[in-house]
């Protein structure tokens, strides 16, 4: 597809990270260009979610080595909020509930902060209301979600739609969606995937972190990476996802071990 023609948006080299003194990322290399879709797959505990959170700047993780350049800027030197304002977006696997804060208010503040940082005019509550309702149609979301507290009492699927709604509002240059498909029934999956596809362009990129190939039927990746033990151990095209679906992860781990053994 568009591989290797777009501008490099994200360049991760030898990234290592630890939490509580335990090494959890052991040297990750990943290059994502504008216009591309990448999928990161792998078994539980392989480091997929950790990698997402480290890139977003979660304070619990300590980066111990390597680098991550976002459009040439040292991403790791920025605060989490500055990363968001720079156009990096993390769709959460488990979005937190914020009782008492109306979703509309939260979304508008996020919108004005991120988009305002790019020199766009802030929207007042009325302007924003029109704007957000348009975006909600895309995700077939009931406008009643605007008046509810952020994620409070939302079902798993509603929370995920709310994440994609935020992606639609913030228009990130790189969206990293952490297990956005988990907990979604087939209709919700179709809607969420449709939303993501709608937001794709030649100028942005999407990284999908997922367990299952199911999502990749709807959002077709250019590259599929397999993570294991805090490393990317295998990279291939979209057919790799099908192979993983058919054969499981064991053979990848096996292959990675023998490769490591040969190298030694």
């Amino acid at each position: 597809m568009s591989a290797s023609v777009g501008k490099v948006l994200l360049a991760v080299k030898g990234l290592t990270a630890a939490v509580g003194g335990r090494n959890v990322l052991k040297g990750i290399d990943l290059t994502v260009r504008a216009g591309e879709v990448h999928a990161i797959m792998g078994p539980n505990g392989s480091g997929k979610s950790t990698f997402s959170k480290v890139l977003a700047g979660h304070p619990v993780y300590e980066v111990t080595g390597g680098e991550a350049l976002f459009d040439g800027v040292d991403l790791l030197a920025l605060t989490p909020e500055a990363r968001a304002r720079a156009g990096f977006f993390l769709g959460f696997q488990y979005p937190v509930e914020v009782p008492g804060v109306a979703n509309a208010q939260f979304l508008r503040l996020a919108y004005n902060t991120v988009r305002g940082g790019r020199g766009k005019d802030e929207l007042d509550p009325l302007e924003f209301d029109d704007f957000v309702r348009e975006k909600m149609k895309l995700l077939e979301m009931d406008p009643a979600f605007l008046d509810r507290s952020v994620n409070e009492g939302f079902s798993g699927g509603e929370k995920k739609r709310n994440e994609i709604l935020q992606m639609a509002l913030l228009e990130p240059r790189l969206a990293l969606l952490d297990e956005t498909d988990s907990g979604l029934d087939i209709d919700a999956l179709r809607i969420v995937a449709g939303g993501v596809n709608h937001l794709r362009s030649a100028d942005n990129a999407v990284v999908l972190v997922t367990h299952y190939q199911r999502l990749l039927n709807y959002i077709v990746p250019d590259f599929v990476h397999v993570m294991d033990g805090g490393r990317i151990v295998l990279t291939g095209g979209k057919e790799l996802a099908l192979e993983l679906e058919a054969r499981g992860y064991d053979w990848v781990e096996e292959a990675a071990r023998s490769k490591a053994a040969r190298a030694a």
């Binding site: 989490p80 909020e81 968001a84 914020v98 009782p99 008492g100 939260f106 503040l109 996020a110 940082g117």
Partner: peptide
């Protein structure tokens, strides 16, 4: 009983909203 925790603040931060604004918004809601 609730606690303004790291995860809530990180969630706000990942949407471009700094800690002070996040706390103020959570408290005002409360």
């Amino acid at each position: 009983t609730s606690r303004i925790g790291e995860e809530q603040l990180f969630y706000f931060a990942s949407r471009g909203i700094g800690n002070e604004e996040a706390v103020s918004m959570i408290i005002n809601g409360f």
